[in-house]
Design a protein around this nucleic acid. Sequence first.
DNA 1: CCCAATTCTTACGAATTGTTTCAGCGCCAG
DNA 2: CTGGCGCTGAAACAATTCGTAAGAATTGGG
Lengths: 234, 234
Amino acid sequence: MSALVTILDDEPEIRQLLTETLEEAGFKVQSFGRAREFEAALNRITPDVCLIDLSLPDTDGLALVHRLAQDQGAAVIIISGRAQVQDRVAGLELGADDYITKPFDPIEVVARVRARLRGGSRSPSGSTNPSSARFTGWRAHFDRFVLSDDTGTEVPFSQAEGEVLRLFLENPKRLISRAQMQEQLGGGAGDSFDRAMDVRISRLRTKLRDDPKNPTLIKTIYGAGYIFLDDVEW
Amino acid sequence: MSALVTILDDEPEIRQLLTETLEEAGFKVQSFGRAREFEAALNRITPDVCLIDLSLPDTDGLALVHRLAQDQGAAVIIISGRAQVQDRVAGLELGADDYITKPFDPIEVVARVRARLRGGSRSPSGSTNPSSARFTGWRAHFDRFVLSDDTGTEVPFSQAEGEVLRLFLENPKRLISRAQMQEQLGGGAGDSFDRAMDVRISRLRTKLRDDPKNPTLIKTIYGAGYIFLDDVEW
DNA sequence: CCCAATTCTTACGAATTGTTTCAGCGCCAG
DNA sequence: CTGGCGCTGAAACAATTCGTAAGAATTGGG
């Protein structure tokens, strides 16, 4: 299923150039020289991407862009001879998805049309991020807030513990100072906050069954901070 | 709820310039000087738009852009000093949503970031809301306001319960904070509204026969929010 | 206006996290 | 080797957050 791209521009050469290039790229193309014709056509077609030159005489740009973007769900790319920053910003604020200035390279136009088609199908909040990490003897599941053993035993960890754990797993074999922790974990730079951090780490060590005096995972560097000793695979 | 924009660029002045402008425009901003830091941070943040200078030394641009666009569902805007058409086309084909060349006007960057956010939230015009979802042991029918068991037993749920349930089922395996709930469920930021939310969830858990202390479906993350643990199929 | 269903508020016990406190350890000077 | 000083670990306690029962307020239908 090839996507439908429309062109609205009053210069025939530009229409032809774009039409050719886009068709070579595998799109279905329909071009128009006047806004009236284009608007009439909208009643029977639903374009996926619209290339528009807004400097036409009979155009109410705002209404047109709005109709395309809002009602039709089409992506709008403005192609204009006006290259000033304020023109571009105005076009984008109008609701356009992209703004290309003349003269343009048709190859780039094709690339930007493709980008718009990709963007349309993107799910707003669907996918999950890599939220599971593995290291010696353990696997941490940040989507469920549990640590799982080699034997399958599961130990839940809390939010506070998880923040520390995550910071370690993101920076293995690197010294992490208390200052960095406070910054990363957003703790107010309170006077006794470092003690809270100690407690967090202490509790985390208990769950990981790691002995501070003989650490396998979390090593204390006296006067400097902590290091996560193991390799981590996300 | 303001969108989160990240910046990845090795030049501190550019980071600062963009950060200031974007924050003035009302976005939340986090900037990074190295790809490694940025990638680490991706484990705990989910940016909506990512501004990236790919000419960094330690960057595998392809992988990074792919990860952002595919896994995280973020929009990617490349900001680069390379202005050749082939560079721009290459960047866009890589999966980026936009390509801005240095030097740039920060105002235009803001406009293009906004355009990206609009694009992401554009509602898929054709598809209607599915009104039924399935997860372990249950099927939720939002058109009839009932939950049906494996055995066919039906449990009705009310409007308020349904709102919470739907929010969970639309964001499985993701932490949902109380703030997000209040925003999504339109609850005024009342003083004691958080208790009402607790009660809603409590009742929902009762109907789902889910024990808070040993949850299968709705897990509490103390001090952070809730997570729906199961996979969901609509 | 009354009744029933739903939702919110209040209240209190339970679980989690932060803070205080102190014992113990590493490091260094002598 | 030894004692002092600052840093760290963790027990005990305090503060915060959460779960839910019970009653009050709101909504909707007659």
